[in-house]
Nucleic acid binder design. Sequence first.
RNA 1: GGCGUUGUGGCCGAGUGGCUAGGCAGAGCUCUGCAAAAGCUUGUACAGCGGUUCGAAUCCGCUCGACGCCUCCA
Length: 491
Amino acid sequence: MELYKQQKIKIYNSLSNQKEDFIPLIEGYVGMYVCGPTVYSNVHLGNVRTFMSFDLVYRYFKHLGYKVRYVRNITDAGHLENDADVGEDRIAKKARLEEIEPMEVVQQYTVDFHNVLRKFNLLPPNIEPTATGHIIEQIEIIKNIIDKGLAYEVNGSVYFDVLKYNEKEHYGILSGRNIEDAIHNTRTLDGQSEKRNPQDFALWKKAQPEHIMRWPSPWSDGFPGWHLECTAMSTKYLGEEFDIHGGGMDLKFPHHECEIAQAKAHNNVSPVKYWMHGNMLILNGKKMAKSTGNFILPEEIITGDNDILSKPFPATIARFFMLQAHYRSILDFSNDALEASEKGYYRLMNAINQLKSIEPSKASTVDVGLWRQGCYDAMNDDFNSPILIAQLFEGVKIINALVDKKETLSSKDLETFKNTFNVFIFDVLGLENVTSVDNSEVLNNVVELLIKMRNEARVNKNWALSDQIRDELSAMGVHLKDGKEGTTFTL
RNA sequence: GGCGUUGUGGCCGAGUGGCUAGGCAGAGCUCUGCAAAAGCUUGUACAGCGGUUCGAAUCCGCUCGACGCCUCCA
């Protein structure tokens, strides 16, 4: 029997603001869409956190035996900057500044994105579609929405008519807003607008002469609005109605709100059953964001090349650190917190390494089934990885007690225990067992110390010791050379 | 200003109306020639003020603070 029939998941649905039983549209299958990055610059650690949160979700579904179709897009058609009416496509702007092709920008940062996620051990999605690869689909959706009277064309651009939509539907259903409030609280209007209403959003934008990314359409040579791509691609690959849509909390409004409105207008059905939003990674008390410069790059964790870091950390430790917080909580990033996680991580891995050598006994003194279900209960409760990790540390205590022969497990229980422990750590949490941190500086110092001790032995004519040091180092691959200027070594 | 989230012991970070989350640090113990490491044990915290309740950190109200969104954003 598949595990998913035994383990029932509850998911916090942003649409209802409460935990709901997860019931897939088709039993045994899960359709999941996650908003991917806009590839106009390097992803920062905050971006990684969000994708990692959904990596956890994906991994757990897979572990339970669900057939998952996980779609995560690449936004390569940029977003508009500043005022939408005069704004410029981000990718196009970057390309113009760097005097390269827009697709070079896209290619460079897409490759970077993939490299980063691989280092943090994120599984690739099943489909990773691009916005520019779905221009035709987007145009078709716009046509349909215009036909239904919920969008209008002005000067070659097309806008979604939010007020009209709101007559029959609720624009703001996801973010808990009322369109009336929004109208009354409009910020200072900047300049003249083509829009009938400030809340309207672009489905298609006419390209200005300086725009280098453009496609033909019935309305103008131009480019699609940002929100539309996700509707086009999720509909195409997951259907008009699918199970889960995820993304960062900051996309809830307006991006996801607009997606709901478009999709409903287009398909006459609410597109998503469970909306999930991952919370922000905070640095210095503020959200990480490229625009403010308050961020840390994933690579900097690994190289230690950032002033706030005391040293480099393996990527998997950063992963462990982030999974120690629930995905819906804001998480504070700091060197101290990372160091604390590092110690806990090694404790966990030491236990795993000891687990291999434990011998079974005739009977069990530990209720393995209860402990195992505790692991599942944690994940079933809205993917609560911190609780799971706490449960795994209970497992660490059990392992230590087994090593000390204070507890025993039958061979069957031991098998279950080992299997569960490994599955949750490596398959579900996606951690990697980094046993030793390769630190060439430490190695250097160690060898220098041995050289010094050997030289003292030579001065004392303690040839037995000095030769022992040289020969044993040599056996380990460290070769000493006595030169006129002193002793050096090679690896 | 509007909408929403949140405020937990030295630090990070879970959580439920009554029963010790967990990690790090600290303390005690075991082990050990000494030390370290490792293991075990230990922490009565929940912004403030009211209210509901037999009982609230957990529900409600107010105050104060923090954060997110309202413009691109994971």
